[in-house]
């Protein structure tokens, strides 16, 4: 039996629901660190960035699931909904920190969104993810039928926008955000048929 089959067999026994309990814990942990001085002398930006990066990491993992099945035979599909929803949870937390702790002034928020491209792009990614989060349940899948798959292709737009948002917000060209964007674009490229044929060959 190939290794991937053995892993798949083991994973079949692992339920997805514990992810909803374990997943938010790192976020709560960094919030605690922020309260107690563990995030350095300026905890607001630090917390905002940590939460944003958690979200981006989860989105990358979510995008990797289909290629992992196609090219490595690993079947993680049943964890994908939890990963997507957790990513959304971190994006909401990231937004909340930006809104309530960072910018603070409600009248400035809209100004920021329309005036600052990296915020416009981040916001667009969030808006695109809203219907995805709302339809990440069995009832919606039944109700929407084939349209559900169409709708959830918005991921292919939302995730790279998140990556671009990260690249744009730092000063200069820094390696870490570019690495995220590179991985995201790579995972998206694996969705193209002609690339798939090449990788498989």
């Amino acid at each position: 039996m190939p290794v991937s089959d053995r892993i798949n067999a083991t994973l079949r026994k692992v339920p997805a629901w514990p992810l909803y309990i374990v997943g938010p814990l790192p976020g709560l942990w960094v919030f605690w660190l922020g309260l107690t001085g563990g995030l350095g002398v300026e905890p607001i930006k630090a917390l905002e960035h940590e939460l944003g990066q958690f979200a981006l990491k989860l989105l990358v993992v979510g995008l990797a699931i289909t290629p992992l099945r196609r090219f490595a035979g690993l079947n993680l599909i049943k964890f994908r909904r939890a990963i997507g929803l957790l990513a959304f949870f971190y994006i909401v937390a990231h937004l909340a920190v930006w809104l309530f702790l960072d910018v603070q002034d409600g009248s400035l928020i809209w100004k920021d969104i329309v005036k600052r491209p990296y915020i416009t792009i981040g916001m667009a990614a969030f808006v695109l993810m809203l219907p995805l989060a709302l339809t990440s349940n069995n009832w919606s899948i039944r109700k929407l039928g084939p349209k559900w798959r169409q709708l959830h292709k918005l991921t292919y737009l939302a995730v790279p926008l998140g990556g671009i948002h990260f690249v744009m917000l730092v000063k200069g060209w820094q390696i870490e955000p570019l690495a995220y964007l590179f991985v995201i674009l790579g995972l998206l490229a694996l969705r193209f048929r002609f690339i798939q044929r090449r990788v498989a060959a």
């Binding site: 309260l35 001085g37 002398v41 300026e42 905890p43 607001i44």
Partner: peptide
């Protein structure tokens, strides 16, 4: 933001 004021 004046550094040193904490999370809030």
């Amino acid at each position: 933001r004046r550094i040193g004021g904490g999370l809030f």
